[in-house]
């Protein structure tokens, strides 16, 4: 989870104050596709303007702020497509911004440090990223469409047809593996990669890895504490 403790958000908090004290809120706004000229708006006013369920916004923001999720969120099932869109936007950020940035830092590292270990690190990262990509694709093409179909069925918008099966435990295994490899990458950089003239680029690389790590942690907390309970609830109601 994010390691800096920030003010806890409530619906009547001034949004600007929260964003000012916690830069990771910028990601939350971006993934909700909200631009900001927040002025003196409270969180609920901001949500009203952007048509975002305020309870969902608060729950997600507090995850990014590093607070534990309340056990009973009582979110509306209509949050399902919104959370999915939010998560799809995080995928876009990983694919098109963060991982390319990490890749280019590794390329830079290679230019200033010619230790043989860097070549292996590069390969390691390529394999790791292939796994991340596979997982994101799995979510985009299997998991999310399954949840969306379930939601459409729930609202009566779709025929009660067959929905492609999806495995919650497989979903979680992916996560564990991705988190583990990212941690190992950091571990190798800190402990074992020989030093070249690379202090600055190594710091940038580790900072980028830390960023993506906390972002991924928030991503999986949203999935396990917000999205999955919503989906399980809908599944239960449909089974009745």
């Amino acid at each position: 989870m994010y390691n800096i403790r920030k003010p806890y958000m409530k619906p009547d908090s001034r949004l600007a104050e929260i964003v000012r004290s916690n830069p990771s809120m910028l990601y939350v706004l971006e993934y909700f596709q909200a631009d900001y000229m927040i002025r003196e708006m409270t969180v609920s006013e901001f949500c009203g303007e952007h048509k975002i369920d305020v309870n969902l916004f608060v729950a997600i923001s507090n995850i990014y702020n590093g607070f534990p999720t309340e056990s009973k969120l009582n979110l509306d099932a209509a949050c399902i497509p919104v959370v999915i869109q939010f998560l799809r936007n995080t995928h876009f950020y990983y694919r098109n911004e963060k991982y390319p940035e990490i890749q280019s830092l590794i390329d830079e590292l290679r230019k200033v440090n010619n230790a043989a270990e860097i070549g292996i690190l590069e390969k390691f990262f390529a394999e790791y990223y292939a796994e991340v990509d596979e997982h994101l694709t799995y979510e985009d093409r299997v998991a999310f469409p399954y949840f969306e179909a379930l939601y459409r069925k729930f609202t009566g918008a779709a025929e009660a047809g067959t929905i492609a099966k999806f495995s919650a435990s497989e979903y979680r295994d992916h996560h564990t593996d991705i988190e583990y490899k990212l941690d190992e990458l950091k571990n190798l950089l800190i402990r074992y990669i020989p030093v070249g003239h690379d202090r600055t680029v190594r710091r940038k690389l580790l900072t980028a890895l830390n960023d993506v790590e906390s972002n991924l942690n928030a991503h999986s907390a949203i999935e396990s504490h917000i999205l999955m309970p919503l989906v399980i609830d809908v599944e239960k109601k449909l089974a009745r």
């Binding site: 043989a116 390691f124 190992e184 190798l188």
Partner: peptide
């Protein structure tokens, strides 16, 4: 070592001079 992956172990072995390329 705290390292699970083969690539990680290779880096560990190289940097501890257990192997050479």
């Amino acid at each position: 070592t705290g390292i699970k992956t083969l690539a990680g172990l290779t880096i560990f072995a190289l940097s501890n001079k257990i192997i050479e390329l």
